[in-house]
């Protein structure tokens, strides 16, 4: 729980932003839906939800939201990106190649574990229990992207069979799965700690 509740901007163009709203509300964190650049005024953090990355990209075109998001991430705003949100932030996207905001130093392959029939709930290997604040972690993977390259400034907090699935680059927390769909996920707790560390 945070003392002075910061307001988090939820990118709400498409996807499971409402699941994120609930996860934050359960931890006493307020959020506001972001559809146009002015919705970002005054936010203390940002959530890029799951959904269809192609769709979300199309909906950002010509709105100025993309450049505004890049500026905020570069300025050190805490970010929680899940699934499609990670694809939006990645340095490079493959399978198929797709434009991205290129602020997170990773390479991702879309639908890297297959189609919906391959979606699964998986027990993950926690690589950094101290960093995450938990020794166990559940991952809900839905048509998930696969991280195939990780840059030097990126810490891997959890893995799935050798693949990095939870990453941190400074104040950006990126999960290729959906912590917002797991009750009491330590990933959302960690994001709230990153937020409140700002004071």
């Amino acid at each position: 729980m945070v003392e002075r509740s910061p307001v988090v901007g939820l990118l709400a163009l498409q996807g499971d932003f409402d699941a994120h709203r609930k996860a934050l509300a359960e931890r006493g964190v307020e959020s506001v839906e972001v559809r146009v650049p002015s919705d970002l005024d005054g936010v203390a953090g940002l959530v890029l939800p799951g959904g269809e990355s192609t769709t979300i990209l199309k909906l950002m075109e010509g709105t100025g939201l993309d450049s505004r998001l890049v500026d905020l991430v570069r300025a050190g705003l805490p970010v929680l990106a899940t699934c499609a949100g990670v694809i939006l932030l990645a340095r490079e996207v493959r399978h198929p190649a797709q434009r991205s905001l290129a602020v997170l130093d990773i390479l991702v392959e879309r639908n890297g574990y297959g189609r919906q029939i391959d979606s699964a709930v998986v027990d993950l290997e926690v690589a950094d229990p101290a960093g995450l604040g938990s020794a166990t972690l559940e991952g809900v993977f839905i048509r998930a992207p696969r991280v195939t390259e990780v840059g030097e400034g990126v810490r891997v907090l959890a893995k799935r069979g050798g693949d990095p699935v939870l990453l941190q680059q400074e104040k950006v927390l990126a999960a290729t799965f959906h912590p917002e769909l797991t009750d009491g996920s330590p990933v959302v707790d960690l994001f709230v700690r990153i937020l409140s560390a700002l004071g």
Partner: peptide, 17 residues
């Protein structure tokens, strides 16, 4: 159940679309 959660999970991802 994990089976039901991943099914509904995809439906969640399609919201607002």
């Amino acid at each position: 159940s994990p089976e039901f959660r991943v099914k509904v999970g995809l439906a969640e991802m399609l919201k607002g679309g």
